[in-house]
C-alpha cells in the first residue's frame, strides 16, 4: 500500500510539482490546529509535570522526588490501595464481563438478549462519576434499599459483617458497574471473531468442546482478554469522581491524594506532587501500552 502510494506520487511528481506542493500546504494547514491543540493541551502540560518531577524547588535536577514515592509511607500506601482496587475491579470485571459477553454471543440464549445487553453496556460504561456513587449509596449505604431489605427480610445487617461501602471492597463493587460493561463492549467483537469453522474443524479432528476452548478459542482470545483487563486496570486507576463522591477523602487512593495536593499542597512540596503525577502516568502508560501491543497481536491473527 505504502509502496504503491510512493510509486504513484513519484510518477506524478515531476510534471505537477507546484500543484502537489500547494495541495500539501493546504493539508498541513488543515491538520495544524490538531497539532497545536495536542502540543498545548496534552503534550506540554504532561512534559511540565514530568520535568518537574525530576527537579527540586530551585529547579536543579534530582531523583529525590521519585525516590520519595517509594519511601514516604502515605504515598506508598496510596499507590498500593489504588493498585489493589484497580487489579480487583479489572480482574473481576474482566472475568464477569467475559462471562456475560460469552453468554450473549455463544451461550445459545434468546436473540433479543444480545442487543439489549450491548445497549445497556453502552449506557452503564458511561454512567460513572458522581451519580454512580449516589446510586450505590442509595442501594448499599447504611439506609440503602438492599441494606434495609436484608435487615427486614432476613434480619441480616451486611454492615455487621464488616462490609463498608466506603472501603476497598465497597469501591471495587461500585467500580464494577462501569468496568463490566466496558469489558463486554470491547470483548464482544473478539468473540464474534471466533469463526464457526474453527470449532467445527477442531471437532471433526476429534476435539471435545472443552479441548476446543483449551487449545483454540482461549489462545486466540487471550491477547484481547488480557489486553482489555489492562485497559480496565488503567481505567479504574485514573478514576477519581466516584471515589471522591463516595468516600470524601477518607479513602487514601492516589487520585484522591493528588486531588488534595493540587487543591492545597498537602505534601508541602510542589515537585513531589509532580512525581506523584509521573508515577500515575507511568503505571497507566505501561498498562495501556501493553493493551495496544496485545490488541495489535490479536488483530494480526484475526485477519
Amino acid at each position: 500500500m505504502a509502496q504503491e502510494g510512493q510509486a504513484l506520487s513519484q510518477a506524478s511528481a515531476p510534471p505537477a510539482r507546484t500543484v502537489q506542493l500547494g495541495q500539501n500546504a493546504w493539508a498541513w494547514i488543515g491538520v495544524s490546529p490538531f497539532f497545536i491543540f495536542a502540543l498545548m493541551f496534552l503534550i506540554l502540560p504532561t512534559l511540565y509535570l514530568v520535568i518537574g518531577a525530576f527537579q527540586d524547588a530551585q529547579g536543579n535536577f534530582t531523583l529525590v522526588n521519585v525516590a520519595q514515592l517509594f519511601t514516604q509511607a502515605s504515598i506508598r500506601s496510596a499507590y498500593w490501595i489504588s493498585i489493589k482496587i484497580s487489579v480487583a475491579s479489572a480482574v473481576i470485571g474482566g472475568l464477569f464481563g467475559f462471562a456475560l459477553a460469552y453468554a450473549a454471543v455463544i451461550g445459545g440464549l434468546p436473540q433479543w438478549l444480545r442487543p439489549t445487553l450491548m445497549t445497556f453496556s453502552g449506557v452503564a460504561s458511561q454512567f460513572a462519576g458522581v451519580p454512580l456513587a449516589f446510586a450505590f449509596l442509595a442501594t448499599l449505604g447504611r439506609t440503602g434499599l438492599v441494606t434495609t431489605l436484608l435487615v427486614m427480610l432476613f434480619d441480616f445487617n451486611i454492615y455487621s459483617t464488616g462490609f463498608n461501602l466506603l472501603s476497598f471492597w465497597g469501591l471495587t463493587l461500585t467500580y464494577l458497574y462501569f468496568q463490566i460493561p466496558l469489558m463486554i463492549l470491547i470483548i464482544t467483537p473478539a468473540l464474534d471473531g471466533l469463526r464457526r469453522e474453527w470449532r467445527e474443524a477442531s471437532e471433526i479432528l476429534g476435539a471435545s468442546y472443552w479441548q476446543y476452548w483449551r487449545y483454540v478459542a482461549l489462545p486466540i482470545l487471550w491477547p484481547a482478554i488480557v489486553g482489555t483487563t489492562l485497559l480496565l486496570f488503567a481505567n479504574s486507576f485514573g478514576a477519581i469522581a466516584t471515589a471522591y463522591a463516595l468516600t470524601g477523602s477518607s479513602l487514601n487512593i492516589v487520585t484522591i491524594l493528588l486531588y488534595a495536593q493540587i487543591r492545597g499542597d498537602v505534601l508541602h512540596d510542589q515537585n513531589l506532587g509532580y512525581a506523584l503525577a509521573l508515577g500515575m502516568i507511568v503505571i497507566t502508560g505501561l498498562s495501556n501500552g501493553a493493551y495496544i501491543w496485545l490488541r495489535a497481536r490479536s488483530d494480526r491473527w484475526q485477519r
Binding site: V31, F34, A38, F41, L42, I43, L44, P45, T46, Y48, L49, G52, L231, A234, F237, G238, A239, I240, T255, L258, Y259, I262, G273, A277, M280, I281, T284, G285, N288, G289, I292
Partner: peptide, 23 residues
C-alpha cells in the same frame, strides 16, 4: 495522530488538569 488521540486514555484526567494549572 492515532497515538496522540489515545493519550487522554493513557494520562488520567486529573494529571492533565494538574498540568494546565501549572502551565
Amino acid at each position: 495522530v492515532e497515538f496522540i488521540t489515545l493519550m487522554p486514555l493513557v494520562i488520567p484526567a486529573i494529571v492533565i488538569v494538574f498540568g494546565y494549572l501549572r502551565l
